[in-house]
């Protein structure tokens, strides 16, 4: 019995550590008019593990597609670049903030109203899945 409990404890602590490898803090989505076909999500994505993490896919049950994009201004010209390979080295924090990197949430399949929590699922190259919730706010 003791062995069984110990095994469970080890398993629980291991999975907790694994879940903390990738953390999204202060996740939010900018509220948009009901007609909006694309919305932007923000937050700080942190790799708390000792390994590099490559994100190979991003999805959300509320959107057709989720992509990482980066806005840049070149002499007042606004450009958006799709970031296809997102690799976070150990300890690195990607700041997704207005006017910079953002989660591009494409084609909502439901109303995205204020205070709604939008789940996004990130899958790493090793097949690990992380789910984060981004709160819709103005």
């Amino acid at each position: 019995m003791r062995f069984f409990i110990l095994t469970i404890l080890i398993f629980v602590s291991f999975s907790a550590a694994s879940e903390n490898q990738l953390v999204l803090e202060n996740g939010w989505v900018r509220a948009a008019p009901p007609m909006a076909k694309t919305l932007a999500g923000y937050g700080e994505l942190r790799n708390g593990s000792s390994q590099s993490i490559s994100i190979v896919s991003m999805t959300s049950p509320f959107f057709k597609r989720v992509e990482a994009h980066k806005t840049s201004f070149v002499g007042g010209m606004m450009k958006m670049q799709h970031i296809e390979n997102m690799q976070l080295d150990p300890g690195v924090v990607f700041k997704f903030a207005p006017g910079g990197m953002h989660f591009m949430l494409i084609k909502p399949n439901r109303a995205i109203t204020e205070n709604l929590e939008v789940p996004i699922h990130l899958t790493t190259e090793l097949g690990e899945k992380f789910t984060f919730h981004l709160v819709v706010k103005k």
């Binding site: 900018r30 007609m35 909006a36 694309t38 806005t71 207005p98 006017g99 953002h102």
Partner: peptide, 13 residues
């Protein structure tokens, strides 16, 4: 453009 999710909403707001 209205499909602009990141920059235009900031300037409009």
């Amino acid at each position: 453009f209205t499909n602009c999710p990141d920059v235009c909403p900031v300037s409009m707001s």
